[in-house]
Design a protein around this nucleic acid. Structure first.
Lengths: 136, 136
DNA sequence: CATATGGTGCAACTCGATTGCAAAGATTAT
DNA sequence: ATAATCTTTGCAATCGAGTTGCACCATATG
């Protein structure tokens, strides 16, 4: 696992107090986080600062966003070397029971045969169901 | 193509003025519609009535919703025989240029090997890029 | 040190989604 | 047919995630 400082440096994003604490928080999570999640975890950090930090991180491809249908956009740290290209796509899993969203980095992403002249640029793939913890 | 009356009857949903006009509108579209889209098209029908109609239709599996990342939930009529089970899943395509969302009924949905003990119930799969009309 | 650039915190605002409530319409029981 | 009940509809208000304006502060640059 890369450190906060390493990631910011590689992605050419200036290190600040808010950015450090937000990125550290994201790195420590096993599930994708919403703005609200982060806000609740970092009580002393302002919502709009977190918001802008997330935008910065997303533009710099430090994190990617996921629309899991919960009504809130979730964010997760990109895998090392990720460039958010189609080749970096992966599935996400949303647990209907515990409301967690995971990146399924290990599930191979299959090429989709699009209709003629359709061109893929990104994708938001969310599988919903029960996670290993709730499927009992 | 089934008629409005047939669909409502099959899905056991009472036929009303609003339901008829909303479903007819949805059947006539080639792309998935947001609440706003429908509202704009059906000027004389109240927003909240359309909203509740969509909820009713979704519960009855007359339509399915798609989160395409545009910030608005889109709705499309389910294919005949669809039960909104995993077997009925299909990909959606969101055009980054013209903002249309299509159901890709003809693209085979590939089985995804989930991690151990994860169970699929539904999925929201959105491929983003350029549609055949905009990819020129 | 002076100035410019960018980050932060607060408060306000936007807009899609949702709800409360009363009126209108449909259904069922008497 | 009429009364009682349940459902649908329209209007207005509310909710909440996301976003922005602005003033202040921190850091970098000359």
């Amino acid at each position: 696992m890369q450190t906060v400082d390493e990631i910011l440096k590689i992605k050419n994003v200036k290190n600040t107090a808010v950015r450090t604490v937000v990125l550290r928080h994201l790195l420590n999570q096993e599930k994708a986080q919403s703005l609200k999640d982060i806000e609740n975890a970092l009580v002393y950090t302002d919502r709009s600062s977190i918001f802008r930090t997330l935008k910065t991180f997303e533009e710099s491809k430090i994190i990617h966003s996921i629309e899991d249908g919960s009504g809130m956009i979730k964010y997760a740290v990109c895998a090392k070397g990720c460039n958010c290209d189609p080749k970096d796509l992966h599935y996400h899993f949303y647990c209907n029971n515990c409301d967690k969203t995971f990146c399924l980095f290990d599930v191979p992403f299959q090429n989709i045969e699009l209709p003629k002249n359709f061109k893929i640029q990104q994708a938001n793939m969310v599988v919903k169901g029960l996670c290993n913890n709730c499927n009992k």
